[in-house]
């Protein structure tokens, strides 16, 4: 399972980003190997079909199969359903990446 988490900065203390498709960065969490990689979102400043391009990139280039977010836009939800991805919707806006990694039992140095 590889999870994409939208975050505001490159730090492990970064707050969760509330704009999934236009999030500036993503933390990619590999649950099997307990590895965390932070990547910049190349589509965050684009105007059209951002959700569609982002999901294709996350799935094909990074093998992501799970999205974790506070809120997902309609287009992202549709594309994620088509790709049979798992969606995890959290109920707290102000979570940091560090707090979410604690839930996932991953120690990110």
């Amino acid at each position: 399972m590889k999870i994409a988490i939208p975050i505001e900065s490159e730090s492990k203390h970064s707050k969760l980003s509330l704009r999934f498709a236009r999030s500036p960065y993503f933390a990619l969490v590999d649950r099997e190997s307990a590895q965390v990689e932070i990547i910049a979102n190349p589509f965050s400043e684009q105007s059209f079909e951002v959700g569609k391009k982002l999901l294709k990139w996350l799935v094909e280039q990074h093998q992501v199969n799970t999205l974790l977010a506070f809120e997902l836009g309609v287009k992202v939800q549709q594309k994620a359903n088509e790709a049979k991805m798992q969606l995890i919707i959290i109920n707290e806006k102000k979570q940091s990446l560090k707090q979410l990694l604690l839930y996932l039992k991953i120690d990110y140095k």
Binding site: M1, N65, K84, Q86, I89, N91, L104
Partner: peptide, 30 residues
């Protein structure tokens, strides 16, 4: 709903089961 949806009583997250299978644990907190 689009697929099977669950709510975790511990971490309050909501999640789906993409393969339409039964889920036994929360994918976030376990």
């Amino acid at each position: 709903f689009n697929g099977n949806w669950y709510e975790c009583e511990k971490c309050n997250s909501t999640f789906n089961s993409p393969a339409e299978s039964t889920v036994k644990t929360c994918p976030l907190c376990g």
